[in-house]
Write a protein that binds this DNA or RNA. Structure first.
Lengths: 238, 238
DNA sequence: AAGTGGTCTAGACCACTGC
DNA sequence: CAGTGGTCTAGACCACTTG
């Protein structure tokens, strides 16, 4: 029972594999779109659809009049910035920990919710995670995350041994494609300040996030409260 | 001299404006792709190219067999995108203004500087801009920007009639490729609070930015102080 | 000048959602 | 069922970069 991948997807995965395996080295040019047409026996529109995925993932960049350049590590920071806390920090020398403040629950969505939910989302429950992140023992981020219960029923037990985003990718084949976030500075509530070990009147970074995935209509939502007195919240994009 | 906009871009901006102005309400369906073909006198491939931009920006989502749903009418500002203040706002219905608090000066870099400068940068002076951005009359962002004086000698007079980033692109052919930023929440100083019309003890978003350009070694630096009491600052990345 | 990616046309068939 | 978006073909002209 072969799945019969779309042709553009086939090209996308082929080239991605070649890049990751080093068959096409960073900085070099991909075959031209016309050459790829010939190689895969597809039209240019289909080739471009496939290449566009690679651009979106940050593997290649296109240069007018020149070609498609492999830049596999240029977007690294930008990619890491939404892949979750642990992935971002694991390459640095700082020790980080994540503490689940409450067991994962499956409940209705909080109301009012900070982003508008679709009817499909509203109709189902969600898993809610309440976690505190620390760096070198200092609490730096309080995170409330909401994952729709939609083919992810055994999420709680799986969550034990891996990060949320890795779990979604590996066990459910859900990949985060994009993040939209709203940022503001607020004076933290007593509960938030307490958990972040801040004093009354201290400012806190509040971030609302919506993660868009490759499963249509499947979104993950987070609210983050950050103690930025010692560590800043940094990201990179292009 | 202005080039005609590509047709897909025209459609993209039109619909985006309609969404932001509330002409198409959140949760409703866009006209079908075939209807848009007829309305704009373009083919479906072109319509899809335009709609895809809206998907990328998080304004719409597509549902197989159903249509394109408007999922966001955020009036928040994509100010964390690197395209600059004016560009982000021009498609929305909100009126924005930029006030130069001081004439553009060419001086040494401030010390200490918030990012590490290369020797080449340190060896030259920089233009410093101090600007206040307002939306609908409300001051929302105080911006200190530093541009190296490196083939940009006539920057001050050129700056009169266009945005900084457009100016750099058009007159000096410098294109911003990537942005690195550090974000924190602070309690504003008296001067900052005053300019942003905030009260003592109010929180402010502080952002340090480094813009990387296609001219090797040429960077632009900014410090932003944002009043997030009324508008949040949003961005989107992948 | 030759080749590249950027844009665009005018069709086509399919799988899916709602009625 | 009729209509939608998902995929795809076979062309075309353009602006741009490099030799």
């Amino acid at each position: 029972m072969a799945k019969a991948l779309p042709r553009y997807k086939r090209l996308h995965e082929d080239i991605k594999k070649e890049i990751l395996q080093g068959d096409i080295s960073k900085g070099s040019l991909l075959p031209s779109e016309n050459e790829l047409c010939a190689k895969y026996n597809i039209t240019r529109a289909t080739v471009r659809q496939g290449l566009q995925e690679l651009v979106k993932e940050g593997f290649i960049e296109k240069r007018m009049g020149l070609g498609s350049i492999v830049v596999s590590d240029r977007k690294t920071l930008g990619l890491l910035s939404f892949k979750g806390f642990s992935e971002v920090l694991k390459s640095s020398a700082l020790s980080s920990k994540t503490l689940n403040l409450e067991p994962v629950e499956c409940t209705a969505w909080p109301t009012p919710f900070f982003y508008e939910l679709s009817k499909k989302e509203e109709a189902q429950n969600c898993f809610s995670l309440k976690r505190l992140r620390t760096i070198e023992g200092d609490p730096v981020m309080l995170e409330f995350t909401y994952v729709p219960q939609w083919g992810t029923d055994d999420l709680p037990e799986k969550l034990e041994d891996s990060s949320l985003f890795k779990l979604l990718q590996v066990h459910y084949e859900i990949e985060v494609l994009q993040v939209v976030q709203d940022v503001r500075a607020i004076i933290g509530s007593k509960e938030i300040l307490n958990l972040l070990q801040l004093k009354t009147g201290d400012p806190v970074l509040e971030i609302h996030r919506k993660y868009l995935t490759d499963r249509a209509g499947f979104h993950i939502y987070s609210t983050l409260y950050c103690n930025t007195s010692k560590y800043t919240f940094s990201n990179s994009f292009n």
